[in-house]
Amino acid sequence: MRNENDFFIGLTPIFHTIIFEMKKQRKKLYFFTMVSILVAVLLSYILQLFPDYLLADTQAEFFSSGLSFISFITLFAACLFFSGIICSEFNKRTGFIVFPKINKYKLILGKYLGNLFLVIFIVTVYYIVLGLFGFFYYGGPINIRIFYSYVFAVLYVIALSSFVTLFSSFMKNVNITIIITLIILLMGFNIADQIVTLIYADTFEPLYSLAYLGNLITSVLENPFPDPRYVEYSFGGIGPGGMGGHFSFGTWITPSIFMGTTLLLVYIIGCFLLAALLFKRRQL
């Protein structure tokens, strides 16, 4: 009984840090919630105000088109919420005040969870707005696959957060962390995926790529789930001067649900643990 109490008492600093971190980041929360609502309203409502912009046939297709920006929102939110989570303690020297008061593992866990709740809240708001308009246009019940999509969006945003946290653990400056993680997540992974697909075609699935794993958010809305997951497009013809030929290029649409989930979890746990270890080792 006593051990149990000690255990919970030991957890209270984490809980207080979560609450404090959520309060600390509330301006970012307001901003991203507004952006999230605006984008969701724009995609699911404002566009529908144009009569000739046809509503999707099904609720799932409606959600799928509405979710086209979710990866951007989650990506920016993760970068802005998590880039300073560790390096700001060193860069802004706030660690001098906090480190002697709370165990570093508890501090990072509290800060991580606090920010995580906020980004998950932002994603949730986006899905709620989308779900509300989906309900408005198509009536109930809400397609169950939107919940699956939500689960993957949450997993994806947690993976992104862990990834950015890892960078924050060894970078010196918050702004540079934001820029570098944005470049990697927005461009780096996509460029790498294209090169890998170009070289290896269907023999190598770009499972290392967070951007690729994020495709599950919309793929899971499709009924049936995309199969085959590697698609090849080909085109050909004769150009001016009789030049011509046959061209084809392939693309991986989505990872499988099992593999995607597993790798997202690997990203989440791996990056966070590594970040926590680096944070513990780092000296101010």
Binding site: Y45, I46, Q48, L49, P51, L55, Y137, Y138, G139
Partner: peptide, 25 residues
């Protein structure tokens, strides 16, 4: 914008009759 949108969706070019159609199920 949201409320105006709901109200204005039905607006039409006709001077005599107006369209009440709304995207919905």
């Amino acid at each position: 914008i949201i409320f105006f949108g709901f109200l204005s969706t039905a607006a039409s070019a006709s001077t005599t009759y107006q369209l009440g159609l709304r995207k919905s199920t």
